[in-house]
Design a protein around this nucleic acid. Structure first.
Lengths: 151, 151
DNA sequence: GTTTATGCAAAACCTTTGCATTTTG
DNA sequence: CAAAATGCAAAGGTTTTGCATAAAC
């Protein structure tokens, strides 16, 4: 699901604010790299971001993409999610949400659930440590993959 | 939490059954690699398994450990879980459970929760695909790390 | 004895780092 | 102009692969 124009603009503007506040330079690379992650509904890896940003900035290098993505993570502008095929993947959706991961093709879709968000933390859990985030990962086979091999 | 003697024996015997069924050879390496994962309560990466197995079989190579771990996964005898520092981690606990991951040290602890297991799948979710497993990942700071830097 | 698994070494892969050059504020 | 970011190339770390040797059935 692609990000709406409105939401994208909100994210871009927040991104600029945070950069200015942190006295970070607003380079064309940073703008395009963030826009790419903020714009897409899937959860691209560094190489995917690089490939797409290169369409706008043909000379951008993969290491700049990596440096920028980790920087964005440090700034709290994006998060990382579980790997697939040994690659980190990035997500600019900061609203509480959960993931459906297809065990065949690895595609990940966001979904929302009041019930999942309302999960109470058990006593056992509290004794393990202090909780920062609860994320539900649902694994299964997505529609596309199901229709491919329906036996 | 270490696996009980009884449970370990159950796992070993299941492992042997599955191998025989698949006409796979029961080598000393396979036995010790599986035993190592089945025995421990933490969720070691390939290097960790290799290091520990080498105590019993000093000549075992890292690539055999990898090949065996992926084989065990294909056979459904172990599962992989989210990465930490770019390393795959392995888990022989096949009973429904959830994970607490420490965002500082990366240690992962299993926990059980009837409430979490009973999560109903919403309609939205059903439309995304068929569900195989629901896993809750709780991120936070574990007790050890909390006592280290209590500011 | 035949088939399969192992160990070795080298390759493949993703990610990070040092440094000269370019760009931003 | 000073400070910081980029691009390049090379290194670092994990995982995979080809092939001869060794082990299991």
């Amino acid at each position: 699901m692609k990000t709406s124009k409105q939401e994208l603009e909100r994210r871009m503007s927040h991104f600029k604010d945070v950069c200015r506040n942190a006295e970070l330079k607003l380079t064309r690379q940073r703008l395009e790299i963030f826009r790419e992650v903020a714009q897409t509904g899937d959860h691209p890896d560094a190489d995917g971001v690089h490939r797409r940003v290169r369409k706008r900035i043909p000379t951008v290098s993969l290491d700049t993409v990596y440096r920028t993505l980790w920087l964005l993570k440090d700034l709290g502008l994006i998060t990382t999610l579980g790997f697939h095929h040994n690659r980190s993947r990035f997500d600019a959706n900061l609203v509480d949400h959960h993931h459906f991961v297809c065990i065949r093709c690895g595609s990940t879709q966001d979904f929302y659930s009041n019930e999942f968000d309302a999960l109470r933390l058990t006593e056992t859990l509290k004794s393990i440590g202090s909780v920062e985030a609860v994320n539900v990962e649902v694994r299964g086979v997505c529609r596309k993959c199901r229709s491919k091999r329906t036996k």
